[in-house]
């Protein structure tokens, strides 16, 4: 009996050791993958920072580019920053209200069938390559009318819409239904309940989603090449004309023969990267804050 018992416990400890080893292996693999992901980000940030930091100065943000100058002059890509602000701002103004309304319809009013249909459509739209959106908007708005900041903003809004709608749907579904019932039981209509009781609960989440979406589209290049890329060098805020944008400017500067242009491209890339990093961090902060608030409402 003792021999038998020993061999069984031996077996058991063997199996235990193997399980431990597999466990350690999986843990190591997971850790390495995580480290790799962080490393990729680190390398990208570091190489952009290393090459861009030299050309980073206030002129980059405030001075327009000067074409064909024989003597070195102070110049930057102010037109691109102005254009990006206008186009991204307009895109947000278009996508945000529509995205929120879509989410409200799907979450608060739609029947289950319509709900899953629209959710699927949003996910498909989210997966459509940016360049396809670009061609679509090119055919719709640019052919016959010419490029414009508005067309570019519309293309970016198409990319933004599913992001905003999906993230809003997510926070709406976090609002406890007992809260809706409390309002409805008073004899308050559904639209009023949604507006006054449900929506205020979601502001933090909507802001988070919007910030992430802005960070995402601020760097989009492909749709803008079709819709807002044939531009002058002067700073313009008029969306009826084609506007230069930061990603398109980076693309064009990097094709220039002048090494000073390359440096400016890196510097502009660095600014864009820092903006996106800060936007993402801000979104995270907003998300934790609003989650805490929603948690308290339960």
């Amino acid at each position: 009996m003792s021999v038998h018992g020993l061999s069984r416990s031996q077996q058991r400890s063997d199996r235990l050791a193997r399980r431990r080893a597999v466990n350690r292996l999986m843990e190591t693999l997971a850790w390495l993958s995580a480290a790799l992901a962080v490393a990729v980000l680190g390398v990208v940030v570091w190489s952009v920072a290393a090459r861009g930091a030299g050309a980073l100065n206030l002129d980059l943000l405030t001075k327009p580019p000067v074409p064909f100058s024989l003597t070195p002059v102070k110049q930057g890509v102010a037109n691109a920053f102005a254009g990006t602000i206008v186009i991204v701002g307009l895109a947000t103004a278009m996508a945000l209200p529509v995205g929120i309304l879509v989410a409200i319809y799907v979450n608060e009013f739609a029947r289950p069938a319509a709900r899953s249909g629209i959710t699927l459509a949003l996910d498909v739209l989210n997966g459509v390559p940016a360049i396809v959106i670009g061609i679509f908007v090119f055919g719709l708005l640019v052919v016959g009318r010419g490029q414009s900041g508005l067309a570019g903003a519309f293309a970016l809004a198409c990319l933004m819409l599913p992001l905003v709608a999906r993230s809003t749907m997510e926070v709406l579904s976090l609002v406890p239904s007992s809260l809706r019932e409390a309002s409805l039981a008073l004899g308050v209509p559904r639209w009023r309940t949604t507006l006054s009781i449900v929506l205020p609960q979601t502001i933090g989440g909507v802001l988070t989603g919007t910030t992430l979406a802005v960070a995402r589209i601020a760097g989009e290049t492909a749709p803008l090449l079709f819709t807002s890329s044939i531009v002058g060098t002067q700073v313009s805020w008029d969306p009826h004309r084609a506007l230069q944008t930061v990603p398109v400017a980076i693309f064009e500067l990097s094709e220039s023969p002048d090494p000073a242009d390359h440096a400016r491209a890196w510097a502009a890339a660095l600014v864009l990267l820092v903006f996106i990093l800060f936007a993402s961090l801000g979104a995270r902060w907003l998300a934790t804050r609003s989650r805490r608030k929603l948690g308290a409402a339960r």
């Binding site: 007992s178 809260l179 409390a182 309002s183 039981a185 009781i197 609960q201 409402a297």
Partner: peptide
């Protein structure tokens, strides 16, 4: 309701 559900 069965569970209290005050507005926030």
């Amino acid at each position: 309701f069965q569970r209290p559900n005050p507005f926030p």
